[in-house]
Design a protein around this nucleic acid. Sequence first.
DNA 1: TAGGCCATCTGGTCCT
DNA 2: AGGACCAGATGGCCTA
Length: 273
Amino acid sequence: MDSDTSRVSSRPSSPEVDDIFMSTLKKSVHGFTGAVSSTQSDSPSEIPGLRGLSAADEDALALRMASKKDRKLLSENELQSIRLKINSRERKRMHDLNVAMDGLREVMPYAHGPSVRKLSKIATLLLARNYILMLSNSLEEMKRLVSEIYGSSGHHGGFHPSACGTMTHAGPVPGHPAASHAPHPAVHHPLLPPAAVSTASLSAPGISAVTSVRPHHGLLKAPAAGAGPLGSSFQHWGVGTGMPCPCSMCQVPPPHVSSMSTVTMPRLATDSK
DNA sequence: TAGGCCATCTGGTCCT
DNA sequence: AGGACCAGATGGCCTA
């Protein structure tokens, strides 16, 4: 999918006024929606300016409506049936999208639970992006250190299985979501002393734009006292010691992350009101 | 009450 | 032709 740019560019920035009008007419005069939605119960009486339409008016409108393509060949019931079918597909599509979004939320390093409001869609996407970037950064750092340690001794420069086995931050995998991170092992980055990781904090724009805003935004039903920026259920924060986890994942988004979030989501970054 | 988020409807566009 | 995708519009719900 993918030819979006061209598709978008060819799309009118806003619908024609007449199209909106006709759409309204279709919905109101002919019950075009099929009244599937519980939130949108359009009826003629609800549309100012359409009240008092005579039967002739409706016929004329129906004619105009039908003139579009071959709709004239379809009965009102057929049109409604088609519309219902399309609406149903769209609902299913959006539902699937939400399911996928939920799946993404589950593997995000963010507080989960009945008392915590779930991430918004945009926050989920932003956090996911930054999470991926952090993991990539962490992986690169790990590779570099492994190379430093084994590279000069003639050992292979790649990951040793034993080292791999101790990597708990390799990223969420199916069945092992980051959200359900097991508590940190005593040494989760055996090759990475705390001093080796960046000293940058999670206040970096990428993460802060999403996570630190949530409480301000009132999205946490119950403030997590003592919880870090990622939330109280985030295992990397304060496990055992109550101190911030020094691991790479908990520390830094890559430098280039700052190019977004706060820019593209000004509201998220400044919504502390 | 304003603003944010969301679900839904809808029509347009593109793809198969 | 039918389906998928997209974006605009609309209204409901919730929170500060």
